[in-house]
Design a protein around this nucleic acid. Structure first.
Length: 360
DNA sequence: TAGTGCGGGCGCC
DNA sequence: GGCGCCCGCACTA
């Protein structure tokens, strides 16, 4: 995570003092380190009690980004921005896809949007969704702190996430876009069917209800070709699920995202039976979403294998030119990943961006 | 419509 | 006082 132009000798000489300068501070300190020889690469999935010092030029740091679903928390300190983790949205049926992947959706940050989200159904089995609250900080959500000081942005994480990683923001946006497109397609199909029925009964074509443009432009309601090309399964059909104790629902009834399961509940992660909250390697979204499933249910990144650290990180782009191959070890804390993972992350990033930008 | 940041206010310890 | 949390508001994309 460290970056800089220091040579190895300098690094050895400075390592002790640098370690001190990088870790001996607390976000609440009156005075933070003024002389930072090296800043950190932006960390997409900060976890545990880590600290980072980013450059004030880092766009991701400027925006206080995180792939965890973090909401703003008022700490009554305008100098320190505090955010708390919202956890992850899981399927109430604890459903799995055919290849054993779990549903880990990204909680909406906005309260109203989150309430609305919880009334919706599992994109995989149409079952109810449950918000798995984060309790990784003494029973409270993990908190992230951001503080801008001069040319540096100090970041501190307090608590270790005790739940799977949700899909990234970009993945969530992509999934919503595709869901929206699919809904539009379905409604258009219903309208066309109605029109055809009326026509067959009356012999007349209703003029008050013109055919939507979507019908004349098949691509308008379909994901971009390159998007589809990266998905092994059709985006027009839901992925077969293997819900525990409940067969997969047909998607027709819940097409608009609403379902009959309104009793969305908060559950403690450790009380969640049936799946390991730390199964990052199997989570369709928490694992970096490098699956091959329907984009309705999962993120669009399709790398065959993703390390836990390797979530699609659009944020990592743009902040500064990033080395591709090989990537030097960046992790001072060394949490969950190293350079190799970062390499795949970058490939994933590129893939994500190429796949997702056409949606916008 | 949703994400983000800010700030008031409340309750708990 | 510190902390967590809720709420509303404004701004932005």
């Amino acid at each position: 995570m460290l970056k800089g132009a220091d040579d190895s000798v300098m690094e050895q000489e400075d390592s002790a003092s640098r370690h001190g300068e990088m870790t001996s501070w607390d976000i609440n300190d009156i005075k933070l380190p003024q002389h930072v020889s090296q800043t950190d690469w932006f960390q997409e999935w900060p976890d545990s009690y880590v600290k980072h010092i980013y450059s004030s030029e880092d766009k991701n740091a400027q925006r206080h980004h995180s792939s965890w679903a973090m909401r703003n928390t008022n700490n009554h300190n305008s100098r320190i921005l505090k955010k708390s983790c919202l956890g992850v949205v899981v399927c109430g049926n604890n459903c799995s896809t055919l290849d054993g992947r779990k549903i880990y959706l990204r909680p909406a940050i906005c309260d109203k949007a989150r309430q609305k989200q919880q009334r919706k159904c599992c994109p995989n089995c149409n079952g109810p969704l449950r918000l798995l609250s984060c309790r990784g900080h003494g029973g409270y959500p993990v908190t992230n702190f951001w503080r801008h000081e001069g040319q540096f942005i100090f970041f501190q994480c307090k608590g270790a996430h005790d739940h799977p990683r949700p899909e990234t923001k970009l993945e969530a946006e992509a999934r919503r876009s595709i869901q929206k497109a699919k809904t539009a397609f379905s409604s258009s199909s219903l309208r066309l069917k109605r029109i055809q029925e009326i026509e067959s009964l009356t012999g007349a074509v209703p003029t008050q209800e013109p055919l939507p443009l979507l019908l004349s432009n098949p691509d308008a309601h379909m994901p971009p070709a390159n998007f589809r090309g990266h998905l092994s399964k059709s985006s027009q059909e839901p992925t077969l699920s293997s819900c525990s104790g409940q067969p997969p629902f047909p998607r027709g009834a819940g097409e608009d995202g609403q379902c009959t399961h309104l009793s969305t509940q908060h559950v403690l992660p450790m009380a969640e039976g049936g799946h390991d909250p730390f199964r990052y390697d199997v989570g369709p979204l928490g694992d970096g979403s490098c699956g091959t499933e329907s984009p309705l249910a999962y993120g669009p990144c399709v790398l065959p294998s993703a390390a836990p650290q390797a979530g699609p990180c659009p944020m990592a782009r743009g902040a500064r030119p990033q080395p591709q191959l090989p990537l030097p070890p960046r992790g001072r804390e060394g949490h969950r990943g190293g350079g190799g993972h970062q390499v795949r992350l970058n490939y994933c990033n590129n893939d994500m961006v190429f796949n997702l930008y056409p949606l916008r």
